[in-house]
Design a protein around this nucleic acid. Structure first.
Lengths: 223, 223
DNA sequence: CATAACATTTGACCGGGGTCAAACTCCTGT
DNA sequence: ACAGGAGTTTGACCCCGGTCAAATGTTATG
């Protein structure tokens, strides 16, 4: 296929990945935030961003922020696809638990190649979501349209299915998973305590009262 | 467990791996050979070796060669264990063919951690050999004693089982594999043509006439 | 045993990805 | 309108793993 641009290494891909996530909302990603997510100082990130813009992977407006170029976005989506396929693989094939897989997938996502990616995709039956419910970009970078909505935007009486739990915090995931609140679970919204209080859900596993911070991570689809 | 020595990264592990292989025979590894195997210049390797010896991973005698320290050997064996477990995993779980796995395993061997290593080991039922028949070092670095002998050392009439095909050349492996001459195959040595000529084997798959260069890669166990 | 041939190391350099401290830009509130 | 403070970039520096060319060590050979 298209030959790969030389110099697209681990560090580069991790930058692109982070910038992608920070620019989904359409806003440019700011240096400090990028630095924070990569556990690097803002000055270090600033230098790296300049290099990435010289390599035409990011569009940089000094003092304003960074967005991805088409090439950068393609690479970011490829990395994200690999990450999420790996997570799926780790859970489905290797029996890891959903709160363990992010770290492993992060380490592996820049070490695998196309062949490996495709093999996983085939073995898993071309999954469209990772174990936490995030969409897996297609090979061409496209993402399917879905009807996920934040649980916290719903009113009492809502009936739906959990589609995504949006965090990479292992402890939180473990807790949420232990409650059985995983993608595919049918839930009914019973109560929302006022003043930022907890919410109460019903599922096949019983009744759950969870803090709003947790509830805010959950996305559902109406049924 | 024992906390990891900082600065043990990909490049380091690949150096240790190569030095390990070059010192199995008890002789110190020479700079040029190390450089060749890592596709770097001898001067680059020389500099790196000095660094590795400062980090107490190799024992370096200038102008004489390098051997591994206990720490270096431990890390090398860990890498080799991971490499061979990965190869086994790629063949048994992901259905890659034995001539495809070396490159993948090489890329992954420095990206996985203890947990991943252990999970593969468990899934595979604690294998003792990789798909090509090389021994998988145990977690403590120990290697079992085996009765593998070179096929080319045997006399006509020999009966045995193939235990190892010692090459990482994909083309050769594919050819040998296509003949069915894989570990576990029972073979009978029928003929050895003189003056470096081909040898003739019989197996369950029929009669094979292979060049001596190929035959020299094959290790067998007498039955 | 001197010297040629080869292996190895050193020195000067480079790019990548970091650090910290200092300088700069931008934005906001008074 | 402008001072401060937050955010960002620059500059000087670092380590790592390379390069090439030159110097040096080792070994074999006539």
């Amino acid at each position: 296929m298209q030959r790969e641009h030389v110099g697209v290494n681990n560090a580069t891909l991790h930058y692109l990945d982070v910038i992608y996530r920070l620019t989904i909302d359409g806003e440019a990603a700011n240096t400090t935030e990028i630095a924070a997510r990569l556990h690097v100082t803002p000055s270090g990130a600033s230098v790296m961003l300049k290099r990435l813009s010289e390599r035409k992977l990011v569009q940089l407006t000094p003092y304003k922020g960074a967005t991805l170029t088409a090439t950068g976005k393609r690479l970011a989506l490829r990395t994200i696809r690999r990450h999420r396929l790996l997570e799926m693989f780790l859970v489905s094939v290797m029996n890891f638990e959903w709160h363990e897989v992010d770290a492993h997938a992060h380490a592996l996502e820049t070490a695998i190649n196309d062949e490996f990616e495709d093999r996983m995709d085939t073995m898993l039956g071309h999954p469209t979501r990772c174990p936490h419910g995030h969409l897996i970009p297609a090979k061409d970078g496209s993402l399917p349209k879905v009807a996920d909505v934040p649980l916290m935007d719903q009113s009492i009486g809502f009936d739906g299915v959990i589609r995504c739990v949006d965090t990479d915090n292992g402890e939180l995931l473990k807790y949420i998973g232990d409650q059985g609140l995983i993608p595919g679970t049918h839930v009914h919204l019973k109560e929302v305590a006022p003043y930022g209080g907890p919410i109460t859900l019903e599922s096949d596993h019983g009744t759950h009262t969870i803090g709003r911070n947790l509830a805010e991570l959950v996305y559902v689809e109406h049924v």
